[in-house]
């Protein structure tokens, strides 16, 4: 399961084809791998390296730069509790403590049943709704310690399964560019001259 299944391999090729250079697809493909397996496996990185024509070290180098990629098994629910200024001013620390108490783990840990991973995160772009958290990147606004406990109970009971897919899945809708509408990605070095709607003689944008 670590390599892409057939459906995801097709998706991977579709994603790669959108970019003038295949390496640009690296981050989307890492997301796809994480969606399939819950985290990014070594095998997945090797396959992505093959798909976009780089070394596995380059895939790891890019992937490990970014916060969201996890390289070890991760809970079905990744709870990120914001700790940056606005949330901190409004009581983020209490939320974190409530989650730690409720889950019996410290920030950075995963529950033994593999259901929850808890993190203290940085700003999640919902500052007016502080303090806030995300479960698998789905928001919960203006949270209270009691609300955190309730949330964890609901998740554990499977009550939020419709709203919150397992860790790894971001958007549940993928972009699809229909082939009859697609302009297509051209290698930048193969492009000569301006696009069709820009008159060659009158340098529109540059003048």
């Amino acid at each position: 399961m670590a390599r892409f299944n057939d459906a995801n391999l097709t998706t991977a090729h579709e994603i790669i084809a959108r970019y003038p250079r295949p390496k640009s697809a690296l981050i989307p493909l890492l997301h796809l791998a994480q969606e399939q397996n819950g985290y990014v496996t070594d095998e997945a990185m090797r396959q992505i390296a093959e798909l976009v024509g780089v070394t596995p070290a380059e895939v790891l180098g890019t992937g490990s730069f970014y916060e969201m990629f996890r390289f070890e098994p991760t809970g079905r629910y990744l709870i990120n509790i914001c700790g940056t200024m606005s949330c901190a001013l409004m009581g983020a620390r209490e939320l974190l403590h409530a989650a730690e108490r409720s889950l019996g783990i410290h920030a950075g840990g995963t529950t033994p049943d593999g259901l929850f991973t808890l993190h203290q995160a940085e700003c999640q772009a919902a500052c007016t709704e502080a303090p806030c958290l995300q479960v698998n990147y789905r928001y919960r606004f203006k949270m209270t310690p009691e609300g955190v406990e309730q949330l964890i109970d609901d998740l554990r009971a499977g009550k939020l399964d419709d709203e919150i897919p397992p860790h790894g899945t971001l958007a549940r809708v993928r972009q699809h560019i229909p082939s009859d509408r697609a302009v297509g990605a051209v290698d930048p070095d193969d492009v000569v001259g301006p696009p069709a709607w820009i008159p060659v003689t009158v340098e529109g944008a540059g003048s």
């Binding site: 890492l30 969201m68 699809h176 069709a196």
Partner: peptide, 28 residues
């Protein structure tokens, strides 16, 4: 795309452009 606002010959003109959705992974 389906409605013809993006892609080849947008609204029947010679204006053609793709918009590709790309998403990051957590790095301010």
């Amino acid at each position: 795309y389906a409605a013809g606002y993006i892609g080849k010959n947008i609204l029947g003109s010679d204006f053609s452009v793709d918009i590709v959705l790309h998403w990051g992974a957590g790095a301010y």
